[in-house]
């Protein structure tokens, strides 16, 4: 019996092969160390910080808590899918403009979460935003500029509602 497993993952619309992985590897590990997608970050690896947030079948989840080998056939979307090379999504742009980025370690996870939130609830109030993002810890900003970035992004989205979004 082999100690290793091989399987395929659909990541950002691409079919990717994971060859000779270890069974216990999380989706976070496989994205970062085997597929070269280091945007999702490893800050706690127990679902308590949100830095590794990705979308799996349109649900926001912590990729550290997804067993990679069980994600075969599922639609995985990461921070790398949000904007074409050299461009920024409207949420990414709002984070940069609002000063929501300091060390940046929580940033990709937060941006994935904010995209998900504004897709589902484009008119979320401040307190709804706070609850929706309570699973994404940030240690640098005290969240002030992050909330501001969400306000900017939400306004931008509403003003520009007819266009398709990155």
């Amino acid at each position: 019996m082999s100690d290793l497993v091989s399987y395929r993952l659909n990541v950002n619309g691409q079919d990717r092969t994971v060859a000779d992985g270890r069974l216990g590897e999380s989706l976070l590990y496989v994205l970062r160390e085997r597929l070269g997608l280091a945007g999702a970050k490893n800050a706690c690896e127990q679902g308590e910080c949100g830095s590794c947030s990705v979308m799996v079948d349109d649900e926001l989840v912590c990729s550290c808590l997804v067993l990679a080998a069980s994600a075969e056939g599922r639609d995985i979307r990461t921070i790398e899918s949000l904007a074409p090379e050299g461009e920024l999504s409207y949420v990414q742009q709002a984070f940069v403009d609002a000063g929501a980025v300091q060390c940046g370690f929580c940033t990709p996870g937060l941006i994935v979460s904010v995209h998900d939130l504004l897709e589902r609830q484009p008119d979320a109030t401040d307190i709804e935003v706070r609850e929706a993002l309570s699973g994404n810890l940030c240690r640098c900003t005290g969240y002030g500029r992050i909330l501001e970035a969400v306000r900017i992004a939400a306004a931008e989205r509403l003003a520009d509602g007819s266009e398709s979004r990155a």
Binding site: L23, G24, S26, E45, Q46, G47, C62, C64, L65, V66, L67, A69, S70
Partner: peptide
């Protein structure tokens, strides 16, 4: 393996090394 939110914490910390997994998802 259901949602993974308990099992994977143990796996990530090295406290559990699964050999066979039945994913119920």
């Amino acid at each position: 393996l259901a949602g993974g939110t308990d099992l994977m914490v143990e796996v990530n910390s090295g406290h559990r090394r699964p050999t066979d997994v039945i994913s119920l998802g």
